[in-house]
C-alpha cells in the first residue's frame, strides 16, 4: 500500500514546522527521512500516525485520505514506533505487545487464539520472548525499543512509520532492526539520524531542512558532499561501500565545515 504526503504543511504557534512537503513511499519501499534536528521529520511522521492534524495538505494511505478514515481504521493500516516519553505503569512485555491488537478489538473484547499466537511470534521475531513476563520499566532502552517494534508488528499494518528506531540500540541491534524492516514487506517511512545506516537500509532518502524537502532520490543521488555540507554543515567525504556500493560518509571531528547558514539556492528546488 502506497503512502503519499501531498503538500503537507504544519503550523504551530505561528511557526511553520513542515512546509508543503510532498513525498511518496511506494508499496513495499523503505524510505528514509533525514535532516538536522528541528527540520520537521518527526512532525511529518506525527501527521502519518495521526498524533497531529496537518494545517493543510493530505496524507494518503493507498487511495484514501487518512483524515477520512476513523482513528481505528487508520491504526489498522498504519503502525508507528513513536518517540513517546516514559510509560509510568509497569506493564509486562507481553501486555504491551498485546496492546498492538487494540485497533482490531472492540470494547472489552479479549484476544483470540490467533492473536495470542501473533504476539508470541512477534516476541520470537524480535528475540525478546524470554522477556515476555518482565516489566517494561525494568528493561534496557534497547530491549524496550524492540518491544515497541513487536507491538507495531502485532498491529498487522500495511504501512509502518518509525521515529528514530535505532535510538538506544547497539550496533548489532541497529543492523538487525533495519534489515528486519527491509525484509518485512511493509511500506516503511523511517526517520534516521545515522546517514550511513540510512544509505544502507533505505531504497530512497528524503532530506528535510527547515520543514522543506530539499532533495529526494536514491541514497547515491542524495548523499553528496555538497548536500551534507549545505544541510548538516558537515564537511564529509563520500565513498562507495566496498561490499555493497552504498554511499558512505567519512568525516573528521576537526573539520566540521561552516554552520549551515541559509541554504544555497541550488538546493532549495
Amino acid at each position: 500500500m502506497d503512502l503519499t504526503l501531498d503538500g503537507l504543511t504544519v503550523v504551530t504557534d505561528g511557526r511553520a514546522l513542515v512546509r508543503e512537503l510532498s513525498l511518496r513511499v511506494s508499496s513495499g519501499q523503505v524510505v528514509g527521512l533525514v535532516g538536522p534536528n528541528g527540520s520537521g521529520k518527526s512532525t511529518a511522521l506525527r501527521c502519518v500516525y495521526r498524533a497531529l492534524r496537518p494545517t493543510s495538505g493530505v496524507v494518503r494511505v493507498g487511495a484514501d485520505d487518512l483524515a477520512d478514515l476513523s482513528a481505528r481504521r487508520g491504526a489498522q493500516l498504519v503502525a508507528a514506533l513513536t518517540q513517546d516519553g516514559m510509560v509510568e505503569l509497569d506493564f509486562t512485555v507481553e501486555e504491551v505487545v498485546a496492546l498492538g491488537r487494540a485497533p482490531h478489538l472492540r470494547g472489552a473484547q479479549a484476544l483470540g487464539r490467533r492473536e495470542r499466537e501473533l504476539c508470541a511470534r512477534a516476541l520470537e521475531q524480535l528475540g525478546i520472548a524470554h522477556l515476555a513476563r518482565r516489566g517494561i520499566l525494568g528493561l534496557s532502552g534497547g530491549e524496550r525499543q524492540r518491544v515497541l517494534v513487536a507491538r507495531a508488528l502485532v498491529q498487522e499494518p500495511r504501512i509502518l512509520v518509525l521515529d528514530e528506531p535505532t535510538n538506544h540500540l547497539d550496533l548489532r541491534h541497529q543492523i538487525e532492526l533495519l534489515s528486519f524492516l527491509r525484509g518485512a514487506g511493509l511500506t516503511v517511512l523511517v526517520v534516521l539520524h545515522d546517514l550511513n545506516l540510512a544509505a544502507a537500509a533505505c531504497d530512497r532518502l528524503a532530506v528535510l531542512s527547515e520543514g522543506r524537502l530539499v532533495r529526494s532520490g536514491t541514497p547515491a543521488e542524495v548523499l553528496t558532499a555538497e548536500l551534507v555540507e549545505g544541510v548538516f554543515g558537515v564537511r564529509a567525504e563520500v565513498v562507495a561501500h566496498p561490499l555493497t556500493g552504498d554511499p558512505q560518509l567519512l568525516y573528521a571531528l576537526t573539520d566540521t565545515g561552516k554552520r549551515p547558514a541559509p541554504l544555497p539556492r541550488s538546493l532549495t528546488s
Partner: peptide, 24 residues
C-alpha cells in the same frame, strides 16, 4: 471503566502511542 479498560492501558502508554494505536 471496565469497558474502557483497554483505552486506559493505551492512555497510560502516552498520547503518541495511543494515537498510533487508533485512540484519540
Amino acid at each position: 471503566l471496565l469497558r474502557q479498560a483497554r483505552s486506559l492501558d493505551l492512555l497510560a502508554l502516552g498520547d503518541e502511542s495511543a494515537a498510533s494505536l487508533g485512540l484519540d
